[in-house]
Design a protein around this nucleic acid. Structure first.
Lengths: 230, 230
DNA sequence: TAAATGTAGATTGTCAACAATACGCGATTC
DNA sequence: GAATCGCGTATTGTTGACAATCTACATTTA
């Protein structure tokens, strides 16, 4: 039976996941700064829950890699090194290249569906660029790439990429307002979309590689970047 | 100061991880069969611990994907579909291709170090093939590929691959004694090693793609495979 | 004064009891 | 006879208290 209009299934999701999602968002938005300790008891009472579920959420984020746990010391927000940035973007490149191939190997309607979604994101991105809302731009940036990978329908690839997306947003966050090359940002994503639509495999692969390479350069070359240690 | 001879640092590892590692091994060895429920309380008392740490371990394995949790029902051992098999090997291919490129782009000593390790594994594999120890062969098979990826030193890539390795062993396990093409198994890995040593990038890429493609064919084409649902 | 040692505080790790939830089965009703 | 309703049971979800461990600081001693 289809759900009647105006009704919604009440969130039967586990509490721990709700907490984890909330915390992840706070971290990638920079409310929790890298290196900062996250206190179990304190947070638990703030969120009006007990340590059990909260602990579970923290563990989840530890496994995702945006928190690090030190035995008997506590959990801390990940501090990114330039090496971390290189690692993250190397894996992102691998995943996106695989996604590109998978998409081009799949049916045409899968490609067009994905393109339609990507177009909408680019449109929003252009809007936010106009008003220079950096948080929103960073979010849309990752939303674009996540949608790209989601197009494959490969749940494992998607799950992996979601983790990378969170880490990437932490990288971008470190640059704060210094999001570089703002003018070409929309253009680069548009290029990727165009090449996908044209089903130009090698062109798409090259574009993805360039995109990642440039991002690493931007993120590692800026010495004033806060929160990224050499 | 260097640790005195005969001394060892006592394992300060978290209990949950010890449990998780142990359970993972039991699952990939087929002690827990796919679809089977894993009872928290029962296992906790069997392992002489409480539900807290055990629950944490289960959650970890859920996130890795070899257990699935149904809200208020319990956790169950993952049942693999042919679609899962395709997904797993698609991601493995992506990761190994990235690892190959990373290795070839890195210093020569990194390649030679990796090759030395891979050689040892192949030697062991040949031994086990002689006595037809399937469990050991499956373990060495994944050990080979894990070592290959570990050679890159990319901690994120490695972590991702370890999860895939566990899932792959579950795939192979489903075939049980019917590990196909046993004669060419050592040969295929030897080929990959040779191409890596020769630094033949495109040859290596092709070999990896073939290796994965064949594996998927073997795993999905056998209808008598236990535990893999269509 | 500097090194070593003991102690206090805070934080995580572990545990056992309690509450909430979903499923299966039998009774009931149309 | 078939569908529905309600109850019992098994299992997970949650909670607060207790134990173990680590860091930092004060104290002692050569």
């Amino acid at each position: 039976m289809a759900a009647p209009e105006g009704m919604f299934v009440l969130e039967g999701r586990p509490t721990a996941q709700l907490i984890a999602d909330q915390l992840r968002e706070l971290i990638v938005q920079g409310v929790f700064i890298p290196g900062q300790q996250v206190n179990e008891s304190a947070l638990a009472s703030q969120l009006n829950t007990s340590r059990g579920p909260l602990r579970e959420a923290l563990q989840r984020l530890c496994q995702e890699g945006i928190l690090v746990s030190k035995r008997n010391r506590g959990v801390f927000v990940l501090e990114l090194s330039t090496e971390d940035v290189r690692e993250i973007y190397a894996v992102r490149e691998a995943v996106e290249l695989a996604a590109a191939n998978s998409l081009l190997d799949s049916g045409p309607e899968q490609v067009t569906d994905t393109c339609r979604e990507l177009k909408g994101i680019i449109r929003n991105m252009a809007k936010q660029v106009a008003v220079s809302d950096w948080q929103a731009i960073a979010r849309l940036d990752m939303q674009f790439h996540t949608a790209f990978v989601s197009g494959t329908g490969n749940t494992r690839l998607i799950r992996i990429y979601e983790t990378l997306a969170a880490e990437s947003r932490m990288c971008i966050l470190s640059l704060e307002v210094a999001y570089p090359r703002i003018d070409v940002l929309v253009q680069e994503h548009q290029t990727i979309l165009d090449l996908l639509e044209a089903r130009d495999r090698s062109g798409l692969q090259q574009a993805i590689k360039r995109h990642m390479q440039k991002a690493v350069e931007d993120l590692t070359s800026s010495p004033e970047a806060t929160g990224i240690t050499a």
